Computed example of a mutant assay.
Amino acid sequence: YKRYTLLSRVPAFRESATKDSLTETEILDFYTPIIQRLITLMISTSEKPSFIPMLNSKISADNLLLQMSNSMAVLRSDIYYVLVKKTVNESFFERIKVEWMEYRSMELEFFDKAGPTIVQAYQDILKHESSATVITLLEEINKTSNIMLAADAEEWWNNSIKLVENIKDLKSVVVEDILDSVRQKYVDEKNEKNVNLAILLTVIVLVMAIIYFSIKSISDTLSELSTAATRLSLGELGLSISKPTRDVIGNLARAVMTIDTNKQKMAAAAVDIGNGKFDTPLKIRSEKDVIGLAMVDMRTKLLKLSAEQQEKIWMQGSVRTIADSMLGDQDVDNISKHVLQALAKVIGFEVAVFYIAKTPDQLHYVN
């Protein structure tokens, strides 16, 4: 950075300035090209587009080639004027040195910032015979502060214009390369945009499809639930609902199916109890299971009622059996025997004895 801004020359100049008394003109001549280079560098840096980082080196090369061609054009004009007029003054050499110093500083910056291909193309330009002649003359003026006024002005003009034109041609190549890169970048960005757009549209279609099928699934499930609830309200059982989903609607569907299953179990238990199967198991789902508790209470009461009814039937049958055994014209012994047999049968005993007291001292039994 210090090399191509000429700042590297400042420490030596300051040391020289402290030892030797320099005029204001000499100091001004020294700092003028430095200030100009800093201003040029600041402008070129601020104008560099930051939205295409890959083109920074090419854009820097283009900008520097423009400055170099302009600087060389000024140099060639000044020298051509002197060669034509065949006269020179001291300010001429100072001006040429400053201008050549600026050109060299821009050249250093060009070597530092431009890509290797562009730098090689510029170095090939410098190898041309006409370019070498121009560079040699400028270096000689810079070192010796002298110029051969007898030199051919037209030859200088032709050689220097070739160098300037070659630099401009190289600049045109760089510009075209930049434009090609920008066009390619545009095509790449456009293709990427199209790909992103296609992906976005695909995602939108997929999302819409998912939403559609989700809504349809929810709607179908709710429709089935509505039908099932209506059938349950009418007392129907054995409902069928499609496989519930794993969401709130699915939980509701499973709850309805559980209600249907429990009601089927209750209905089957009620049928068994109605058929006298009072040992039918009844599962109480919780202490708040009103229907389950009512079924258990009903079974208990029916079981008690059935037992009482059976007892009444048994009593009535037993009385009728005993009464039947007493029918007919029978003596006491036969009646006693028949009644005793009927009583044993009713009670379920194997042996029964009936004692008859004929006298206070004598018992007679009938079996």
Rank of each mutant, 00 (worst) to 15 (best):
L239C: 00
A268I: 05
V82G: 03
L28I: 11
S46H: 11
Y212E: 01
E154G: 06
I215V: 15
D361C: 00
E15L: 15
Q330N: 14
V82F: 04
P33D: 05
N334H: 14
K19Q: 15
K86S: 03
M315Y: 11
M208K: 05
I211P: 02
K86M: 04
V351I: 13
T359D: 14
Q316I: 00
Q123R: 13
I284Y: 10
E109T: 06
D29E: 14
A255T: 15
L363P: 05
I118P: 09
S325N: 04
K162T: 01
I135K: 12
I284L: 15
K97F: 00
E192A: 10
N367W: 06
M54V: 10
K127I: 08
R285V: 03
L149N: 01
V290Q: 11
T221G: 02
E165Q: 15
A357N: 11
I161M: 13
E189K: 02
K162Y: 11
S223A: 13
S233T: 04
T202I: 07
Q330F: 06
M148N: 06
E308S: 10
A270Q: 03
I39Q: 12
V256H: 07
K216G: 01
V98R: 08
K127N: 12
P11K: 05
L282F: 05
G348A: 01
K337P: 01
I199K: 11
I313N: 15
L28Q: 12
G274V: 03
S130K: 14
N251P: 00
D180S: 15
I322T: 04
Y81L: 14
Y4G: 03
I96Y: 02
S69D: 12
L293T: 06
L75Q: 05
Q264V: 15
T5C: 09
I215M: 11
L206E: 00
A121V: 02
T258Y: 10
Q123N: 14
I147P: 01
S233W: 06
R37N: 07
N70V: 01
V353G: 04
Q362H: 12
Y81F: 12
N196I: 10
E26F: 01
G235R: 03
Y186I: 13
T202A: 13
S160H: 03
D279Q: 07
V332P: 00
L108V: 01
I27E: 12
K143A: 10
V84D: 12
L28M: 09
L237W: 02
E90W: 03
R104M: 11
N262C: 00
E140S: 14
S8F: 09
I34V: 13
A357M: 09
E94F: 08
I52N: 09
I284A: 08
